[in-house]
Amino acid sequence: MTAVTAGSEYADHVARSTHLLDHGRFTTLATLGEDGPWASTVNFVALRDPLRLLYYSLHRSKHSRNIEARPDLAGSVHLLGTPGFGLDGAQFTGHCEAVAASEVPWHRQVYYELNHPDPEVRAAWLLPESDFTGDGPRRFYVVRVHRWWLLDIDRWLADKHDTRVEVDLARLATDGRRP
């Protein structure tokens, strides 16, 4: 892997990752089920220290059933229209679990506040807590990110090789910009 050039506008991997986590609203999750691999795109918010991605989904959907059987997964986040290069992206691996019913109130509040900061917009999207527990059709899920890689833009600009550079999760998780 080629080293990042000192002074490059793309060398700050924590800042780029933070931008992706703060502004990338969708992640594609790759899961594995009895009938093979499956990819699903979900709307997420990032939680920090440790780095986690919070989303909700129907608990009987294919990816949710896959996660129930095999909670390890891979995923990606990308953004178009970013400053400089115009696009950025990350790939990650992690472990995903449904949020326990007792923890739903906190996760629901945080998810909706981060995803919809405007109270009027939030009210329009807000689903009742009962949708996420008991016989409700949905569950909140948390992906605990184990590893995180960025598109190596410096390498691409140097030799057009499409490679990734791993970001130190400890530095990323303690950024302090999110709960």
Rank of each mutant, 00 (worst) to 15 (best):
A74F: 03
A74D: 08
A74P: 06
S76L: 11
L79M: 15
L80K: 00
L80S: 10
G81Y: 02
P83V: 09
P83R: 07
P83G: 10
P83K: 08
G84T: 06
G84Y: 08
F85I: 03
L87H: 01
G89V: 01
G89L: 03
A90D: 03
F92Y: 14
F92E: 06
F92M: 09
T93V: 07
T93P: 12
T93D: 11
E97C: 12
A98C: 10
A98P: 09
A98S: 14
V99A: 07
V99C: 09
V99N: 04
A101V: 05
S102W: 00
E103R: 10
V104P: 07
W106I: 09
H107A: 15
R108W: 10
R108K: 09
Q109E: 15
Q109Y: 06
V110D: 10
V110L: 14
Y111H: 12
Y111G: 10
Y111W: 13
Y112N: 12
E113P: 09
E113A: 13
L114H: 09
N115P: 02
H116L: 13
P117H: 12
P117E: 13
P119M: 06
P119H: 08
P119E: 11
E120A: 15
E120R: 10
E120C: 04
V121Y: 12
R122P: 00
R122S: 08
A123F: 02
A123R: 04
A123W: 01
A124G: 11
W125C: 13
W125P: 00
W125A: 14
L127S: 04
L127T: 00
L127E: 09
P128E: 01
S130G: 02
D131N: 05
F132L: 07
T133I: 15
G134N: 10
G136D: 05
G136T: 01
P137V: 01
P137S: 04
P137M: 01
R138K: 09
R138G: 01
R139E: 06
R139N: 11
F140S: 05
F140P: 06
